[in-house]
Amino acid sequence: MTNHIGQNIRSLRKKQNWSQEKVAKGLEISIPAYSKIETGITDINIDRLHQIAAFFNVSVVDILIDEQAGSKSQEQGMITELKAKLAKREEEYIQLQAKIIDLYEKLKKI
């Protein structure tokens, strides 16, 4: 769990184009301590989590949400939707083939 939190924090920092040094100074911690938060080595207590959220001007929930899990869920949903569309197209293709065969048989009789 700590790993995705660290990744979310890193992502917030990179979106702002800030260095680890700038964030560490803003949080009044050492650069190595901040680095350990981003890499998931250090567990974050609730007070530190609130401090980080305030620093980046986001909610604690924004930091806690596992974006990758949500992304995987979205990808799975898209895959399911695409499979359904593909199945529908295959059905249409089979129907068109049947019509072509039917027309061919009618032409043969003429």
Rank of each mutant, 00 (worst) to 15 (best):
S71H: 15
K108G: 15
N45A: 03
Q95Y: 04
P32M: 04
L103K: 14
L12W: 14
Y93F: 09
S71G: 14
S59I: 00
K22Y: 13
K85I: 09
R13I: 12
Q76L: 13
S71N: 14
F55V: 06
G6W: 00
S59H: 06
K108S: 14
I29A: 09
L107D: 14
L49S: 12
A33I: 00
G70D: 07
T42G: 02
K99E: 12
D62E: 11
G77R: 02
D66E: 09
Q68K: 15
G77Y: 03
K88N: 04
I52Y: 14
Q16Y: 12
D102H: 11
K36Q: 09
G6D: 02
A69V: 11
S59P: 10
S11A: 15
Q20D: 07
V61E: 12
I37A: 09
I110A: 13
N3T: 13
T39Y: 10
K83Q: 04
E91I: 05
V60E: 10
S73A: 12
Q68M: 15
T42H: 03
L107A: 15
E38C: 12
I65R: 09
T2D: 07
L107H: 13
K85L: 01
F55I: 06
K109N: 11
T42C: 01
S59F: 08
L96P: 02
Y104P: 00
I41R: 14
K15N: 11
Q76F: 11
S11C: 07
G40A: 03
R48V: 09
K109A: 15
K99L: 11
I52L: 10
T80S: 03
W18E: 13
K14W: 01
F56E: 02
I63K: 00
K36P: 03
E21M: 05
K83F: 03
W18T: 08
I100L: 10
Y104W: 02
Q51Y: 02
L27T: 10
Y34E: 06
A87R: 04
I44P: 10
I100S: 06
Y34C: 07
V23P: 07
D47S: 11
E105P: 04
R10V: 05
K108F: 01
R10G: 02
I110H: 04
E28V: 07
K106P: 00
D62K: 04
W18Y: 14
K22E: 15
K22Q: 15
H4E: 08
T39L: 13
T39I: 03
F56R: 12
D43C: 01
E91P: 00
E38A: 13
L103Y: 15
K22W: 07
K109D: 09
G6N: 00
H50N: 12
F56Q: 09
A24W: 14
K22P: 07
A54Y: 01
I31C: 08
K108T: 10
Q95C: 08
K36S: 06
L86Q: 07
G26V: 03
S30D: 05
I37E: 00
R48P: 13
I31S: 07
L49G: 09
A84P: 05
T80Y: 01
D43P: 02
E90P: 06
I110E: 13
L27F: 02
F55N: 07
V61C: 03
